[in-house]
């Protein structure tokens, strides 16, 4: 037993220090590409830290969203940034600063931040022993929530407001991106034999995994967000292999899928309110099925939304008018 605690201690300390070191290298390395790759590694080790903290639900979300999809987004943005003007992006990275100011400022900055760390550490160590938290209330009401995984119960029932607003945040982000850029279909991109074959194997498997995560979320680690993230990974993989949604899809069907999760969520609560429930209150007898319904819609929407975030703009299916095409081509947003 003694050696076991010692071992787990050694593991925790190694993990914590590695996290710090990876974060430092990701933020300080000269090369942005290297920084992003280190950041992805940081995200994966964060998932390990969540497991150590007995939070498997967060570990799944972190591995899929925090490391995987964020990494894909960052690498995609870097590729667009460097397409066109390679020398310029390198140069902007080493922008000179006014020499006399820099030294004083960085000294002051380091001093202030060290003071901040000391204060934070002091506050954390001096925290009074915790009250019982909310675990007791959650455990008392879990039978009325319709699911047996306490995290899913919290997300979809006790604090459903959070999830509702979160769906709205996702929708807002995708609306913002759609209004910022237009993506034209990069025609004729060949994925290569290995990626092509791998995607044929992986895509059905990933969809299956997504469905499993959605279902298992009611009683074990998993749920709508993890399922949606795996679905989005499928979408990103398909986009990378050169698959593109047809022209029929990017109009109304895509918009419908983007708002589907939020719309179902709002519709369910409004219908329940007609029958006398208060806002976001699910009757215990129906709660299980209602949560499943909302989760299916939410997972679909999250998957499509995150894929749309990776696409990075409003898809433009039709061959665009010549003037617009010229303008976009000179601006360098189009991946070459």
């Amino acid at each position: 037993m003694e050696t076991l605690t010692l071992l787990s201690w050694a593991f925790d300390v190694t993990l914590g220090l590695t996290l710090m070191w990876l974060a430092w290298r990701a933020l300080a390395s000269e090369d942005l590409f290297k920084g992003i790759v280190l950041f992805i590694a940081f995200g994966l080790l964060m998932a390990l830290a969540w497991v150590r903290l007995d939070a498997p639900d967060i570990a799944l979300a972190e591995a899929a969203i925090g490391a995987g999809l964020t990494g894909a987004l960052l690498l995609g943005a870097l590729a667009k940034l460097e397409a066109g003007a390679e020398s310029r992006s390198r140069r902007s990275e080493i922008l000179p600063r006014p020499a006399d100011k820099t030294k004083v400022f960085s000294g002051l900055l380091v001093f202030l931040l060290l003071a901040l760390v000391v204060m934070l550490v002091y506050a954390i160590v001096k925290l009074p022993p915790l009250a019982s938290g909310l675990s007791a209330q959650v455990a008392e009401n879990i039978t009325a929530s319709g699911v047996s995984n306490p995290v899913t119960a919290t997300l979809l029932n006790f604090r459903a407001y959070d999830t509702l607003l979160e769906m709205a945040v996702l929708l807002l982000a995708v609306l913002g991106i759609r209004s910022l850029a237009v993506v034209q279909e990069p025609r004729g991109r060949e994925p290569g034999a290995v990626l092509d074959m791998l995607s044929h194997l992986l895509v059905p498997l990933l969809i299956l995994v997504s469905g499993y995560l959605l279902w298992v979320g009611s009683y074990a680690a998993g749920g709508a967000f993890q399922a949606g993230a795996v679905l989005a990974a499928t979408g990103v993989l398909l986009l990378l292999t050169g698959w593109l949604p047809g022209a029929w899809f990017v109009g109304w069907p895509l918009r419908f899928l983007l708002i589907f999760g939020l719309a179902v969520f709002v519709a369910v609560t409004l219908v329940l309110q007609l029958f006398g429930a208060s806002f976001l209150e699910f009757p215990p007898s129906l709660a299980g099925s209602l949560i499943l319904l909302i989760e299916v819609a939410a997972a679909l929407s999250i998957g499509v939304t995150l894929t749309a975030l990776f696409l990075g703009g409003r898809p433009q299916p039709e061959p665009p008018s010549s003037g617009r095409a010229e303008k976009r081509n000179t601006s360098g947003t189009q991946p070459s």
């Binding site: 007995d54 939070a55 639900d57 967060i58 979300a61 972190e62 969203i65 925090g66 999809l69 964020t70 987004l73 960052l74 943005a77 938290g133 909310l134 675990s135 959650v138 306490p150 995290v151 119960a153 919290t154 997300l155 006790f158 604090r159 959070d162 999830t163 979160e166 945040v169 996702l170 807002l172 982000a173 995708v174 913002g176 991106i177 910022l180 850029a181 749920g223 967000f225 999250i302 995150l306 975030l309 990776f310 990075g312 703009g313």
Partner: peptide
């Protein structure tokens, strides 16, 4: 274990990727 902070962090991770994507755009 207290599931409420766990649920909040899962929400936070999704909000973080939304903000990141918008910032990149």
């Amino acid at each position: 274990f207290d599931p409420v902070p766990h649920a909040m962090v899962i929400t936070g991770i999704v909000v973080a990727i939304s903000a990141t994507a918008l910032a990149l755009a």
